[in-house]
Write a protein that binds this DNA or RNA. Structure first.
Length: 479
RNA sequence: CGGGGUGUGGCUCAGUUUGGUAGAGUGCUUGGUUCGGGACCAAGAGGCCGGAGGUUCAAAUCCUCUCACUCCGACCA
């Protein structure tokens, strides 16, 4: 192995040449998805869907550990129901798909294919919440939603996408606010621990918050090219929907009150985040926690007696992991490239020479370094390398995030960075929509990502207008 | 929704300028030799050229309309 960084896969466009084309190449070549004849919709192929299943399992366990229960709501929303909350319908109406015909008859009321399910949950909450004893209600649903997008890209923006949407009702505003923040933390932990993606978290500005919400919180991972991806959001609704839907409960003091509401969601867009955060010119790199195949075993000289037997034995010893033994008759080199393209975190090579020495070879997808190990230490070495892959991915992503986060103290600095340096810009903000609009206008698309948690002010005046600053905001372009 | 690009065997594309009835590589199938970084030889199968209409003796090629994908904006998870 003279050059570990040599590009083996000619079919994938280099990231540095054309990031968008690289992305499209990877999702296709890694067999994550395919296009369908339905405009704006995509097919999840087995490997891509398996990633989503692992994400689901992981997140679902985190939700259930906190007491959330899964439910399933209808996929249609009658027009009158959607219109109950004014801001909400204004926000979503432009991207709704409508059903107007049932069978062969015109419907008396058209049905929206759900773009999100707040209204359906509220209609139901009205029926099941009567007493303070009925609260909190901690619901979640796994489903797909439809938003009639004008431009689509695999995983990042499709007309139909898969997600989970949590919807909760609480007795008090404090409790609902705490839930909103708690679920954002769940997302933050999930991104870091399971997807190996460190991210900035914080609150959305008024301009960027969810239609109908009082407060929106967000997790904003940065992709390899410095562009942001909204990775998940958590909303606090106050009692706005409760009032619009007339949801009330009788409190312990026998007074009638409105409950307070939250919702929060993560979608299949998170798969796009994985691809664009970790991938390289050889293809996908999957974090071990959600990789459909964590270890691929590739036998060398597999036709020679004893090799496949030994490889199978190794596979059995690693049964606590998701392991695949590829004994197809492709050449070993072909298999190496194939599984690198598909982002399998750890490759295990075993051939006659290794078997003679009671050894095998482990190769990390991140560094592609070969490590010769004794079969005596097999389990521990595999465990260590999987952990190492995860840590290296986190480390690499954190370095990228840090390296591409800049500070701007005035408008000239801001526009200069926006034009020349892809990434995040930390800058103080006066709180006005005018400054947000101006920045977006002048820079051609840089928007406020969030008012981040845990960052100190860097100045006293707004980087845009020079008036006294209220908040530090992280700005950037987004997918 | 505005601007660009592309639609030709499964995939990547040539052929379109100058109409003459479809080609390459790769993949696939079968047989053999190989096998530790995308192996080689041989023989095969597979496309009425995105769709509709028009011009013409003749259309992948020219004209009109349409659909899809893709990139760049605006909108959004």
């Amino acid at each position: 192995m003279a050059d570990n960084n040599k590009k083996m896969v000619e079919q994938i466009t280099s990231m540095d040449v054309d990031f968008a084309q690289w992305y499209t190449d990877v999702v296709k070549k890694a067999e994550l998805m395919d296009y369908s004849s339905v405009k704006g919709c995509m097919i999840f192929r087995p490997y891509g869907y398996a990633i989503w299943e692992n994400i689901q399992k992981d997140l679902d366990a985190r939700f259930k550990a906190l007491g959330h229960e899964n439910v399933y709501m209808p996929m249609f929303i009658p027009e009158s129901l959607l219109q109950r909350e004014k801001d909400h319908v204004e926000g979503f109406a432009p991207e709704c798909a409508w059903v107007t015909i049932g069978g062969e008859n015109q419907l008396s009321e058209k049905l929206c294919v759900r773009p999100t399910s707040e209204t359906l949950f509220c209609e139901h909450f009205k029926n099941v919440i009567h007493s303070y004893r009925d609260l909190p209600k901690l619901y979640n649903q796994w489903c797909s939603v439809v938003r009639w997008e004008k431009t689509t890209r695999p995983f990042l923006r499709t007309s139909e996408f898969l997600w989970q949407e949590g919807h909760t009702m609480h007795a008090t505003a404090e409790e609902a606010r705490a839930e909103t923040r708690r679920m954002l933390k769940v997302y933050e932990d999930f991104y870091l621990e399971s997807l190996a993606i460190p991210a900035i978290t914080g609150q959305k500005t008024e301009k960027e918050k969810f239609a109908g919400a009082e407060e929106t919180y967000t997790i904003e991972p940065m992709m390899h090219n410095g562009v942001a991806l909204q990775g998940g959001t958590s909303h606090y609704f106050g009692d706005g929907f409760a009032k619009a839907f007339d949801i009330t409960y009788t409190d312990a003091d026998n007074t009638v009150k409105y409950p307070h509401q939250t919702s929060w969601g993560v979608s299949t867009r998170s798969i796009g985040a994985i691809i664009m955060t970790h991938g390289d010119d050889n293809g996908l790199i999957l974090p071990p926690a959600i990789a459909p195949i964590q270890v691929v075993i590739i036998p060398a000289a597999q036709h020679k007696p004893g090799v496949l037997e030994k490889a199978t034995e190794v596979k059995d010893r690693l049964s606590k992991y998701r392991v695949k033994l590829d004994d197809s008759d492709q050449s070993a080199g072909w298999k190496f490239s194939q599984y690198e393209m598909k982002g399998v975190p750890v490759r295990l090579e075993i051939g006659p020479r290794d078997i003679e020495n009671n050894a095998c070879v482990l190769v990390s997808r991140v560094t592609r370094e070969k490590k010769f190990i004794s079969l005596d230490n097999l389990e521990a070495e595999v465990e260590a390398m999987l952990r190492q892959v995860h840590d290296e991915l986190v480390d690499r992503a954190a370095k990228n995030l840090a390296a591409k986060t800049y500070e701007a103290h005035n408008f000239e600095e801001f526009t200069d960075i926006a034009e020349h340096k892809p990434g995040y810009i930390k800058a103080m903000w006066c709180g006005s929509v005018e400054c947000e609009d101006k920045i977006k206008d002048v820079t051609g698309g840089v928007k406020s990502r969030c008012i981040p948690f845990g960052m100190e002010p860097i100045d006293t005046v707004c980087a845009c207008c020079g008036k006294p600053a209220k908040k530090l905001v992280v700005w950037g372009r987004q997918y």
